[in-house]
Nucleic acid binder design. Structure first.
Lengths: 154, 154
DNA sequence: ACTGAAACTGAGGAGGG
DNA sequence: CCCTCCTCAGTTTCAGT
């Protein structure tokens, strides 16, 4: 993991469909060298995948909410997390410190569906209470943090 | 926006580097037909981009926090959002309903850096108070909601 | 670990139904 | 809106250094 790797990663975070040839031009390597490096980054789990970003409302998911989840005293958080994973409308799931056990991000089509989701959440064993924060607008999301942290090698 | 488009979108959310030929095989179209459809989805803003996903701790960003932001009474939320956008450690920014004006997701290397970020936030004009929730672990994040919503055409 | 050569495959545009 | 060509560029492997 050196500076070259970091520059390749930054470029791929910006444009996940960049060609190896293009990446090579940007960092000053041949396409095959980039190909080799990216392959290693993928197989060592540094790069976990490539995904198209989609405008949620264009695919009928215009309602976003952040939901804090209070577990019951006896709850097994692993079980709760597993149950949350089964709900497709739960897009992200964070185990957090504080009064709440989890914070999840949910995306649905309508507030009616949100209500249904809250009902489903409350029926999960181990969930005592939820606290919902409705998202009015997403200013930006999943932005690549190109702080280009340090220049140290691995 | 028909079923074919939705299937192409779902495939690209899963694998953003899928080739047009591969997508064509999956949905039963020629590569050029897929090429044409994807081009339209991109230019109409349905697909907003392609990004490599990276394991945050592998790039030295092992600390994640969710921060609720209370604005001052006189704050202009547009200005606050603009100021938040200037902080590279702020990865996502949501305008929300409720007591807080914004919820942001922040990723930094250490808790020391988190402290610095909180300091920077408090110095932003229009921000009265912050409430930080430390993420202990990310169970899953940005998962494609393949609820394959409806089968209606556009 | 990178380069350059070579064989292969996909990209992307033209033309036609 | 989709297909079939066609050409060029990128991918991917491999021998060499």
């Amino acid at each position: 993991m050196d500076t070259l790797d970091r520059r390749i990663i930054a470029a791929l975070r910006e444009n996940g469909r960049a060609t190896y040839a293009e990446l090579g031009r940007q960092v000053g390597l041949s396409a095959s060298a980039v190909h080799e490096r990216v392959g290693k980054l993928e197989s060592t789990g540094v790069i976990t995948g490539y995904h198209a970003m989609v405008d949620p409302s264009s695919v009928g998911l215009g309602v976003t909410a952040l939901i804090g989840i209070h577990s019951t005293d006896t709850a097994d958080d692993e079980d709760v997390a597993a149950s949350l994973a089964l709900l497709t409308e739960v897009e992200s799931c964070y185990r957090v410190a504080g009064e709440e056990s989890f914070v999840v991000k949910v995306r649905v089509a309508t507030v009616d569906e949100l209500e249904q989701t809250l009902g489903r959440l409350r029926r999960i064993a181990g969930i005592a209470r939820t606290r919902t924060t409705l998202v009015l607008s997403t200013r930006f999301e999943g932005r690549p943090n190109t702080s280009e942290v340090d220049t140290r090698d691995e």
